[in-house]
Nucleic acid binder design. Structure first.
Lengths: 115, 115
DNA sequence: CGCGTATATACGGTCAAGCATATATTTGGA
DNA sequence: TCCAAATATATGCTTGACCGTATATACGCG
């Protein structure tokens, strides 16, 4: 992957919010991301496809759900960029709100509940 | 500045090369950047304007030359992102080549010579 | 099978961002 | 005051990226 492609992925608000959420929560399925961000399913899915093609995330099928998480083998400097970004952004109210929306989702497929 | 705007700045190859060069060299004028990257002057100037408007760099007039450097007051996490990126990229041959082109420039305005 | 849910992709339209070329502005020096 | 060098901006064009809507695919269950 070209380095400019990494930043192009991060330069879209939807993709950035997805990544910040995945870093905070570990693994989420598409319907959880859709609910947390309050966006349409095709929109989320399309952006996840971008992140997948850029090897920033990987997916795993669990029954009818597809769980996404950060890619296991991110280059060190990419991981460093993402961590520095998440440390800052996940403290901001807009990003906190995404996680709160996630918690308020009824019948979450994977995990039980939020802290 | 919005966080997505930071990454949008970094997602253009010309701007990223300029920033990596400024991190490595400290302060450079437009003609030095133009020579190092082998691109047209208006193109470099336009991209520097973007970086300036995003508060990623600041400029300083010295006679007929305008010297650019990283902005003195970058937020900590932005600095962390840039440093992690530069540590990786400035080892790569394409980026090393930019610095070598800079050294081969005759009559460099500011500094004397390269190491 | 046939249906509902979850997810992915295809299609057409719109808009932002980049480019090359040309020109304007500022400065230093004859 | 005039010219050349350094830098910035304007103009018109093209391309790529995003969006919404519609549709396709895959899975679980009866």
């Amino acid at each position: 992957m070209l380095e400019t492609d990494l930043f192009k992925q991060l330069s879209d608000a939807t993709r950035l919010r997805c990544l910040m959420l995945l870093i905070a929560e570990g693994e989420l399925c598409v319907c959880e991301l859709t609910h947390a961000l309050g966006l349409s399913q095709p929109k989320i899915s399309r952006h996840l496809a971008h992140l997948r093609q850029a090897d920033l995330v990987q997916d795993r099928r669990v029954g009818q759900w597809i769980h996404y998480r950060l890619h296991d083998n991110l280059p060190g400097w990419v991981r460093a960029v993402l961590d520095a970004t998440a440390t800052e952004l996940n403290r901001r109210s807009e990003y906190v709100a995404d996680r709160q929306n996630l918690c308020s989702m009824p019948n979450r497929p994977g995990s039980a509940c939020c802290a």
